[in-house]
Structures are given as C-alpha cells and as structure tokens.
Simulated assay, not measured.
Amino acid sequence: MWAEEIVAGRPAWRHTPSGVVFRAVPGGTFRMGLSDAELDAVRAIERAGEAEDDLEPFFTGAVRYRPVREVKVEPFLIAHPLTVAQARHWLPEYEDSFTESPSATARLEDDLDDLLETWPFQLPSEAQWEYAARAGTTTLTFLGDGRPGEDQVLDDFADEERTAAAENAFGLAAMGSANEICADVWIPHYEDAPADARPRTGDGPRTVRGGAADLSPWQGCDEWFLLLPAIRDEQHDFTAVRPTVPVPPAGQGQAEH
C-alpha cells in the first residue's frame, strides 16, 4: 500500500492505490501563531507602501491568530492538496466547479463529507498545518518577511519542475494557496489551546488555512495575507483537502527509485 520513492530529488512515500505522494515531516517544537516580529514585518510592508488597503482591520483582527504559544509536533506524513484526478479515486463522479484540469487542486463543496468518509487519511490539525507551512522558519512566509506575490501561488501540479521549485524545506508546495480545511473546530483565538498538535474538536464549522489562489487573479485587496502560515479563518463554502497520515511503521514500504 505504501512505497518509498525519490520524488523531485527528495524522499517521499506514495500511497500506491491513489498515487498521492506524501512527504515526511520531522517532529519538533515551534512557536505557533502570529508573532510580534511578524506583526512588525506587516507594519514595515505598510510603511513601505506595499499594502493596497488600510491594514488597521488586520491588526485589530490579529487576536484570531494569537496568543503565540510553543507547540510540540510528532513526526507525520503530509501531501500536497488533493488534485481533481486524485479526488476521483474515491469519488469517481466528482466534478469540480472551479477547474477542468485534472492536475489542479480539487475544491470540494457538497462532496466533502463523502470524501472524508471514504478516504483512508486524516485532515491535518492546525498545528500540523502551520508547522509544515513554516518548515522551520519564523518569518511571514518560508521565503522571508517580504510581501508575498501571486508568483508564490501554486494551484496546478502538472508542471513538476515548478512544483519542485515552490517546495519549502519539508518538500511541501502550495501551503496557503488554496483554502484548506483542518481537523480543528473553529475557535477564534488560541486561549487554552493544547501544547501539542492535537486538533481542537467540537461542534460547528472547521478552521481553514490559506486561500490566496481562490481569489486569483488578485484584486488588490491584500490577498497576500492568505499565504502567511499564521492566518486562519472559519470555513464557509468550498475547501481543498491536504491529507495527512502517521509515519508508516518500518518495513511497510518497498523502496523504489
């Protein structure tokens, strides 16, 4: 069911029935949430005149991404968002209303519950998602504190070279591009959040991360915020899904190069 491979020059695990490729994310501890340093970086972007809108609403709403806390994350596997073709492995009749490309990110609406009931994977917790997106960095994005642009958005994985070039240090691309659902229920702050990567469960809508590609081409409304690992929101409509699984026990995969 699992095969260890080298994909784009990096080790990977392939779920052979579906073809979904996972990267191994090492365990570790990180500071989760929007830090004071990141807030200062956004202010620097504003002072430089690189923001399209008045950013005061962003600073007022920053409570949703705070308080910053230290979180311990165990090793796990995580993939790129499911593509339309991969979603059809479990939902053969799936049609995407946002794209006709089978290699593009699937954005599920009414089919979401059916997929989650059928596939053998898990949704990432918020902590797992942000840890994977940061990939050891503490800046606004894994590329630094500069304002991200539309060139950092990746929404189709047909071009393997472009996909590989967009990967962070953990070998993951498109973190923040699509609106991605997490396992956590939406709670508009991190008060009393756990110090490990367990999702916060309960009734109500789930939390989503990212969404910069969902608004592309950008309309000059500071959509770049959606590429920041710390940004989070409440799920409303369509969503992408980025599967995760625990690291398979040794010996379950057969090495293929």
Rank of each mutant, 00 (worst) to 15 (best):
S35W: 03
W90V: 01
A8R: 08
D114S: 08
I187T: 12
Y65T: 13
A165D: 08
G211M: 08
A41P: 11
A106D: 12
R206T: 02
G220S: 12
A195F: 08
T60D: 09
R147T: 15
E109A: 11
A195H: 15
H236T: 10
R209G: 04
A62W: 06
V245P: 03
E191D: 10
A85K: 15
R147Q: 12
A3E: 13
G204Q: 11
E5P: 13
A79E: 05
L227H: 10
E74A: 13
A127V: 00
A132N: 07
E4V: 10
D222G: 05
E126N: 09
P81A: 13
G149P: 07
R162G: 15
A3G: 11
L172A: 01
G144N: 03
Y94C: 03
T137C: 01
R69N: 00
D40W: 15
R209K: 08
A164V: 09
G176Y: 04
G19C: 02
P249T: 11
W2G: 13
A213Q: 08
L227V: 15
Y131I: 06
P120R: 08
E130T: 15
H80Q: 15
A240P: 09
N179A: 06
G49R: 14
E74P: 01
V84A: 05
E95M: 12
V68H: 07
P243G: 03
P92H: 00
W224K: 13
R206G: 07
V68P: 03
R206Y: 10
A250D: 14
G61L: 13
A240N: 07
Y65H: 12
C182F: 03
V84Y: 03
F76L: 12
A79T: 10
I187L: 06
E5N: 11
T141D: 06
A165V: 00
G211F: 11
D114R: 01
H257W: 12
D96Q: 07
P75W: 09
T201E: 10
W218D: 00
S216K: 06
M175L: 05
P17L: 00
W13L: 11
P246Q: 05
